[in-house]
Amino acid sequence: MARMKFLCDAERCIECNACVTACKNEHEVQWGINRRRVVTINDGEPNEKSISVACMHCTDAPCAAVCPVDIFYTTEDGVVLHNKDACIGCGYCLFACPFGAPQFPQDGAFGERGKMDKCTFCGGGPEEDNSPAERAKYGRNRLAEGKLPLCAEMCSTKALLAGDANEVSDIFRERVVARGSNRGAWGQNLQFNPLGGTRR
């Protein structure tokens, strides 16, 4: 069995937000919710970095640990999915999540939290694969079709990688060898390092 992982290469991400848009379109995610987002640190400064982030499908997921109704489960591929039918919209998964992945639509009077929505690694939910019910609640189940998450598939700079952890590591390892550094900032260091471009 595969062990699914995302990896975002901060050296390659150009903050085009295409992953955000592709995800939203593929799964017809409801208004006001983005399962993925791009964050830029040091925007407009020499060492600007962007990174695309969504649910990272943790092994020991904090969301699953704090959920009062125990709706989370991990698939054989290591994808963390949830059962929206039982979700009560308490928001605890969002408080515990390191990546801000769980999103809540506003629902009912006084804009209470509705049922939680998050990245499924394009893996749907507990319903039958690609059934209308699954499609409506969780979006498309690409994994069941033998496809990988669309955000990574269509990333123009291949900054965002998704797939079996071993294969993702192999790709990144090649890049590290080519760059001569696993810190992923080789080019930036050369140009902007105040010490005079020493490669460290």
């Binding site: 987002r37 964050v39 640190i41 990174i51 640990a65 408080f95 999540c97 390191p98 990546f99």
Partner: peptide, 27 residues
């Protein structure tokens, strides 16, 4: 916090380091 084009509370924060601590204290 950094900058994110996605609107939302704390969308610019990449890592919410207090989450794990909260989980451990609550559970």
């Amino acid at each position: 916090p950094g900058l994110s084009q996605v609107d939302g509370a704390e969308s610019g924060v990449l890592i919410n380091a207090a989450g794990q601590q909260w989980r451990e204290q609550r559970n």
